[in-house]
Amino acid sequence: MAQSQIEQLDPASSTLVLSLDVDLYSRDVLYAAAYVFIDRAYILLDRDADRYMVRMRAKQKMPDETMRAMAGEFENELLAQALREQVGKANQAIIEGITALAISGATAVAESHADGPGLDGFVDDPKGLGAPWQNKEEAPEG
């Protein structure tokens, strides 16, 4: 089921070159998948006719099998990013709708605080030093 192809694998120079059809995945998916590897490899993307070329040079020397595993991981990452993109296209509007609804209600909530001290900044723990070891049920009302 592999949709990317190994064009070059050279353990001596720790270089792996993969290619994939430009129509298979969006550029966002390619970026996102490539990005995942920048801690382990130096990456240069290019295009050769109707193929995207992904040139990776491992930052540390890798044996042949590890480089093949990295090629497999890249393929897997393309899939993960493609899945994420598809779900996002289908249902990202849900997240955006909820966020818009929450923000549109902000004015009313802010006004309710005008009557007296609200909760903001009160139950906050900006330094991460809040007191532990009290059951929620026992906690005083704000």
């Binding site: 089921m1 497999g72 897997n76 993960a80 779900v87 289908a90 849900i94």
Partner: peptide, 24 residues
């Protein structure tokens, strides 16, 4: 670690409209 999607699923079977955006 990364989820081994390639071993677990076939993209042709995905139903992206079933789920809210998620990560794994």
């Amino acid at each position: 670690s990364q989820v081994a999607l390639a071993e677990l699923t076939d993209p042709a079977e995905w139903k992206p409209d079933f789920a809210v955006p998620f990560n794994q």
